[in-house]
């Protein structure tokens, strides 16, 4: 609907006036930042040693991609994201099915789950630091009660990554539970009634009714959790600063902070930002491709 003519053309501009303030803020801040970031990523710049950036072309990108530690951090990030999102989706689905069946105290259970996800991730880091201390932490005390050997948690090379995954699972499983629960509650009752008449088991009903109907919600939840786990920073920063023992929790975001920002390799920091951005966009595109497939089956 295009409107032409003088009194109407002024009205045709009106919608833009309503939207523009938001667009100006978003584009102004993010657009400026990313343009500036890209130009810096093509330079070598240490503000304390040389005040003017020295152009190096794509040198930073080549240098970064050939740095074994950077590749290690890509690997750590993928393991962290796959481990935490995988566990969150499985536990979240189980949790949502359980909460859906709940007859009493549903509200209370939901509240208890909102609390971890609404806490500052930095505070979640503090809480679990308290829990995971080798000598004074409750986790090792629980292990000793069960007669199991104590674990080094975030102070141990092999356990540091599972430990930060555990904290992520603690904080974000509730998100998956709440979203999937909303999805489950909006399912129509008819297919289940029909399945019961046909004598289907609950497992069959889940496999052949719930999963297909929930596909879209599941994929969207998966997308959100993946994107957000790729950008995880605060908890890892507090629990495994510097990448943790053996740098086994050195995610991309930690690499960016410790290896580029702190030593003031600004060109490298900007380059790492761009690579994180590209990886996120790629993964988003892949999962959105899946969503599209999922949407078309509906």
């Amino acid at each position: 609907m295009r409107r032409v003519g003088s009194p109407k053309s002024r009205r045709a501009l009106a919608p833009y006036c309503w939207v523009m303030p938001s667009v100006i803020v978003i584009v102004g801040v993010m657009g400026y930042a990313f343009a500036k970031g890209f130009s810096i990523s093509l330079t070598k710049w240490n503000p304390f040693l040389n005040p003017t950036p020295v152009p190096v072309g794509l040198g930073n990108y080549v240098k970064l991609l050939s740095d074994p530690l950077f590749r290690h951090s890509v690997y750590v990030t993928v393991v962290f994201a796959a481990g935490s999102v995988g566990a969150e989706m499985l536990l979240g689905m189980a949790g949502a099915l359980m909460v859906q069946k709940l007859r009493f105290l549903k509200g209370l259970v939901r509240t208890s789950m909102l609390i971890p996800m609404m806490l500052a991730p930095a505070i979640a880091g503090l809480i679990w630091k308290l829990f995971m201390d080798i000598d004074f932490g409750l986790l090792n005390y629980f292990l000793s009660l069960l007669g199991l050997p104590e674990i080094g948690w975030i102070a141990d090379k092999t356990w540091v990554l599972p430990s930060v995954v555990l904290v992520d699972v603690w904080q974000w499983t509730p998100f998956v539970v709440l979203i999937l629960l909303a999805g489950l509650q909006s399912l129509p009752p008819e297919p289940y009634e029909a399945a019961e008449i046909d004598g289907a088991t609950r497992l069959q009903a889940f496999r052949y009714i719930t999963l297909p109907l929930m596909k879209r919600v599941i994929v969207i939840t998966l997308l959100f959790r993946t994107i957000f786990s790729l950008r995880a920073f605060d908890t890892i920063f507090l629990l495994a600063r510097g990448g943790g023992p053996g740098q086994n929790a050195l995610t991309l975001s930690m690499y960016l902070y410790e290896r580029a920002y702190i030593p003031f390799h600004m060109g490298m920091a900007a380059t790492a930002s761009y690579i994180i951005l590209i990886i996120t966009l790629l993964i988003t595109a892949v999962i959105l491709g899946l969503t599209h497939g999922a949407g078309s089956t509906e």
Binding site: I227, L252, L256, S273
Partner: peptide, 24 residues
């Protein structure tokens, strides 16, 4: 497209943006 653009900016990872924001 404008709606899509605004929503899509939500996917930008802050950890990827924070260094460019620092320069800005």
């Amino acid at each position: 497209p404008l709606t899509f653009f605004i929503i899509a900016t939500r996917m930008l990872p802050p950890i990827g943006s924070v260094i460019p924001l620092f320069f800005m």
